[in-house]
Every structure is written in C-alpha cells, then in structure tokens.
Amino acid sequence: MNSLPPLRQPCPPGTCTCRRDELLEEPGADLRILRLTRHEEQRLRERLENIRSLADLERLQQRMYEQLGIRLSISPSHNEVRSMRGIAIDFAEQPGLCRKTRQAIPAAIRRGLERQPEIAYRLLDAHDLLRDA
C-alpha cells in the first residue's frame, strides 16, 4: 500500500487565494507545499523565531525550498531600515501557499530578528549597507 504524507486541510471557500484545488488537479504539479500542515507550520514558525545566526536563517531558507518549494527572499528594503519592518521578506509566486502562511512566516522571521538583532546587522552588512558606519 502506498502511503501518502498528510496534506494541508483546505481553507474555507472564498477566504484564501492559495489555489489549492487548481494545484491538485494539475498533473505533475509540485505538491510539496501541501505537506505543510498546520502542525508543521507551527513548528516552522517556532524554528524561525528561534534563529541564532544569519547562517541558521539561510539554512532554514534552503530547507524550506528543498522540502516545500518555498522561495523566500530576505533583504533590506529600498527605504531606510529603522526597524525590523524595514527588512523586506518576499515570497516567489507559488500556488498552494496559504494566505495565512504568507503572513505568518515573515512575522516569525521578524520576531526572530528582534530577539537577535545582531542577525539583522549581519543581514544589512551582507548587503553592504553598513560599509560607512
């Protein structure tokens, strides 16, 4: 018997723009994102909130891509960076990624950066924003 991993429960109709049904109907579609159940999403948010270094954050970004297909870019915004809100966290377009997840992951990353501000400084330095400081 072929056992499939549990898939995320569908959002109530009309509340989300994830296009989950389209993804399930498409032959050969990448269904990795649907493996992110609510329980697994909670674990991911906890890990993102407890990052210890920029390398740890980059490793989590890589693992999210490998395991779920989530492409996430984290960079300083084009305007001034005065708080963690000044760091842009963007997702690549991906069917199946729930609207709530698109909000929860950046919020968890920002909470992690607030707990460990030196990670934000390393991120700014990696983008050469602190060269004159």
Rank of each mutant, 00 (worst) to 15 (best):
L54Q: 07
S73M: 12
C98G: 04
L129K: 11
E25H: 13
G69Q: 01
I89M: 04
S77K: 07
L60W: 04
H127M: 10
E46L: 11
R19W: 13
Y65S: 11
V81I: 15
A120C: 12
A133R: 09
I33C: 04
N2Q: 12
N79C: 15
P13H: 04
E49C: 07
D132H: 13
I87H: 00
R38E: 08
E80C: 07
Q62S: 15
R43H: 02
L48A: 07
E41A: 06
Q62L: 15
M84D: 13
P117C: 12
I119N: 04
R111M: 11
G14Y: 07
R122G: 10
Y121C: 13
R82T: 15
S77A: 14
K100G: 14
D30T: 07
Q116S: 10
H127T: 15
R59D: 04
A133P: 08
L113P: 00
Y121A: 14
C18S: 01
A55S: 10
E66I: 15
I109D: 06
R110W: 00
E118S: 15
T17R: 07
L97V: 04
R85S: 14
R99T: 14
E118H: 12
R8G: 03
A126T: 09
P95A: 14
D132Q: 14
P117I: 09
A133T: 13
E93R: 08
P12R: 04
Q61G: 14
C16F: 02
R35L: 14
E80H: 08
R82K: 13
C16K: 00
T15I: 03
A88G: 06
R131I: 11
L54C: 06
T37M: 04
P10L: 00
I33Y: 03
I70V: 09
E26A: 10
R32V: 08
R63D: 14
E40S: 08
T15F: 03
Y65G: 07
P27G: 04
R43W: 05
Y121T: 15
R19N: 14
I74N: 02
Q67G: 13
A55L: 08
S83Y: 05
I87W: 00
R8V: 02
L31M: 03
A104H: 06
L129N: 10
L31K: 01
M1F: 13
M64W: 03
E41D: 02
R52F: 11
L72A: 02
Q61R: 12
Q67A: 15
R20L: 03
G14M: 03
E93M: 10
